[in-house]
Write a protein that binds this DNA or RNA. Structure first.
Lengths: 225, 225
DNA sequence: TCGATATAGTGTCTATTCTACACGAACTGC
DNA sequence: GCAGTTCGTGTAGAATAGACACTATATCGA
């Protein structure tokens, strides 16, 4: 059994929801190949770090963010996917609240930006495929889990929760039905701060109830509805 | 950006359902480390083949099977998971009908065998974790998809279908409700051959209807029930 | 050949869940 | 204090889930 050595990379699909749009973090490549094109942030895995650690490191380098939600998405390893040679890439999906979704200070404005995830610009390598799969995965998880809550900064209002679900699912939801269902999951707890912004009635705010995980496989499935 | 070179392997979790038990294919390691211990079949990815091709090659080497259902499960890459050095492994999940689940002729009997997947023997490396995750994934997919049909050889009876679902879900299902639901998916079509085995009424048999994919995300969710 | 035995195949009723739908409440700003 | 805006709430009809038991059809052996 021989052991050919390959390069292993991690790529990050960092999502946020802003202005009723699902956005993904892209960086402009400074080197060949695909120099000047948009691509996912990422980099090679060093010998001593775990895959997830490598992903978090890259995320911190681009955005300065730590402790956000991250999960492994899929691994791509077609022999020709990188013209430089054989590179296997492990893609990770990360969710950041819009309020925290800033490109790291020090990067010039053109270097990195959040852009529409469903109609991204032309991307380097097979990154368009990776983004498409991540979008699909997120949509699927919105159907049965509270994962989308990671796109919000606590405390949040139920209208904000509904907005992220609508964006991920790509359709409008009935307000009363949505609120009934999301509260029935018993995953949210009311805070005592009210959100007042604008000339209208203030909204109650919520945070995750301490006893609940984000993903609910148990009954209490969110959808269909 | 430096490019450390790592070894990339594929490991296979090959499932079958036999005698109301979920079984997984294991091989006895002939070399160090973990020599003599049970492990998942697998091997290193060569420079010219894709990851899935490597997985299919390993599967064929152990079982002689081609064209079975296979999907990528997850990628493990902790720095210390293999004492020989840094090995990133991409695990694949494969489903084979019991009628085809044979270890390749030429392997000695002790070399490879299907064994209970939920209480496997002590496994090499982190393979127990991999098996556990595969079992969980299969159970989850049984809740909303027709993926378990890959565990059956066509044509099959509805009782056989129910059996695999029961094994994957770990609970008994009501016969009438199950048949109503599975048929409502419109994923099965009746054949004209009857299954007669034993001293009782023969059963209709079915195959997958040509127009249907195995996985159904659309409504018509199978469970809860 | 007839009875015992084993699995196949089928329908209904009740409880729960889904879905559609509209208006008063509470605040700001002019 | 009025206009404008978002917040917050209940119900009724439709669809789906879930519990439940008996007849049909074959084989086998007495």
């Amino acid at each position: 059994m021989k052991r050919p050595e390959l390069s292993v990379a991690v790529d990050l699909v960092v999502f946020t929801v802003r202005a009723h749009t699902l956005e993904v973090l892209l960086v402009r490549r400074g080197i060949q190949p695909y120099r000047g094109q948009w691509a996912l942030p990422g980099g090679f895995v060093t010998t001593q770090e775990s895959l997830e650690a490598a992903a978090r490191r890259e995320l911190a380098e681009e955005t300065g963010l730590k402790g956000v939600y991250i999960e492994q998405l899929y691994t791509w390893g077609e022999p020709k996917r990188d013209p430089r040679g054989r590179v296997v890439t492990v893609a990770y999906l990360a969710l950041v609240p819009a309020a925290r979704a800033r490109v790291k200070a020090g990067s010039d404005a053109a270097h990195a930006a959040f852009q529409p995830a469903r109609q991204p610009p032309r991307l380097a390598f097979d990154h368009a495929v990776i983004v498409a799969r991540a979008v699909e995965r997120l949509g699927t998880k919105a159907e049965y889990s509270t994962l989308p809550l990671h796109l919000l900064k606590e405390p949040f209002t139920l209208s904000e929760v509904q907005e992220v679900y609508e964006v991920l699912l790509g359709r409008d939801l009935d307000k009363r039905n949505f609120r009934r269902k999301i509260l029935a999951l018993d995953a949210l707890e009311e805070t005592d701060v009210m959100r007042r912004d604008g000339a209208h009635r203030p909204a109650r705010t919520f945070r995750l109830s301490a006893s609940r995980p984000y993903l609910l496989k148990e009954r209490g499935i969110l959808f269909p509805f």
